[in-house]
Amino acid sequence: MSEARDLLGRPLEAVEREVLAAHEQLLRIAARSDLAPCVRANTLAALALTWQMANDLDLPVDTPPE
């Protein structure tokens, strides 16, 4: 597997890999169909935040689901 890079083409730093992992973890939670309304709504809110963290760090993430 090729090494992940940011939009500038640089290898990711440790903190950037952790941000991506947190975002991906939230994406997995959001994909579940058994979430209580409180968990679903807060997961989506958290995803908007992790998307913004990734965006600020120029990480190639897609738009969160809804």
Binding site: L44, A45, L47, A48, L49, W51, Q52, N55, D56, T63, P64, E66
Partner: peptide
């Protein structure tokens, strides 16, 4: 605007 948009707007 969406949730994501509002995070970006504030940013």
């Amino acid at each position: 605007d969406s949730r994501r948009d509002w995070q970006w707007i504030a940013e």
